[in-house]
């Protein structure tokens, strides 16, 4: 018992460095609630590392500021929650009451608006974005409104951007794309779940702005990829993905 305790105390360094695996991280966070010494240690390590980052400081591109500030305008800050983990880096879409659909789409719109900002930010009202998206994303709403929904975005190598929304509770994953190049004639955009050593078909997505709920969701999936395939799709990818989105860890 004592050994076990002594052992978990020594994880404070690895925890502060984000070097624990998800299960251990959760276990250590439970330990932190009870152990003031580890809390103090982790706090002081975090403060020290925030100074260490000085040596890596680097000016970001100007467009990042524009897109960050444009992106927040449609997103409402969450109210304070007691005992919530400050390290919860997942952007959770909270369940919302009557206007669930609009609110969820607003978040998607914000994310996609952000994507637009990278190249040429134009002022679009939230309503515009919502109408533009609602047609494409109607099926995606269920995933978007899940209380545990998590999002991740990535830029396509051929232009445009994809936003993945996943809900662990329902096991569903949706892909919302924006500004993808039109699908070449005779071809289709096929989506894949990429696991450790396996790639399985997950559905199809259109060019431009579109949303789709993906089929299947293997437990070992670490990313989704989108490739150009002959019309009708392929049993396995025949080209390199032009869009890859890593599935955020729990």
């Amino acid at each position: 018992m004592n050994d076990e305790n002594a052992d978990i105390h020594t994880l404070s360094g690895a925890y502060a460095l984000d070097a624990l695996e998800p299960g251990e991280r959760a276990a250590f966070e439970r330990h932190l609630e009870a152990c003031e010494q580890c809390r103090d240690e982790v706090r002081s390590f975090g403060d020290a590392l925030s100074v260490v980052v000085d040596e890596s400081a680097q000016e970001p591109p100007e467009r990042l500021r524009d897109s960050v500030l444009a992106g927040i305008t449609a997103v409402r800050p969450l109210p304070p929650v007691t005992h919530d983990s400050p390290d919860d880096v997942v952007v959770a879409l909270r369940p919302v009451r009557r206007r669930a659909v609009t609110a969820a789409l607003a978040v998607a719109a914000a994310v996609l608006g952000v994507a637009l900002a990278g190249t040429a930010w134009r002022t679009v009202t939230l309503q515009d974005e919502v109408s533009r998206l609602s047609a494409a994303a109607a099926d995606v709403t269920t995933v978007l409104t899940a209380p545990d929904a998590r999002i991740a975005t990535a830029t396509a190598t051929t232009g445009g951007r994809g936003t993945m929304v996943m809900s662990p509770s329902s096991g569903q994953v949706a892909l919302v794309t924006d500004g993808l190049a039109p699908v070449p004639a005779g071809k289709t955009y096929q989506v894949w779940f990429v696991g450790r050593g396996s790639v399985v078909p997950a559905g199809f997505v259109d060019g431009g702005t579109a949303g789709t709920v993906l089929t299947g969701h293997p437990d070992d999936a670490v990313a989704i990829g989108v490739t150009v395939e002959p019309r009708g799709g392929s049993p396995a990818p025949t080209s390199d993905p032009f869009l890859t989105i890593a599935i955020p860890a729990a």
Binding site: S67, V68, V75, A110
Partner: peptide, 18 residues
């Protein structure tokens, strides 16, 4: 890195009260 920064600031904005 830009995407990470983008996601970070969106999270900071949403969770500032926490």
């Amino acid at each position: 890195a830009e995407e990470v920064a983008q996601e970070t600031y969106l999270a900071v904005w949403r969770q500032a009260a926490r």
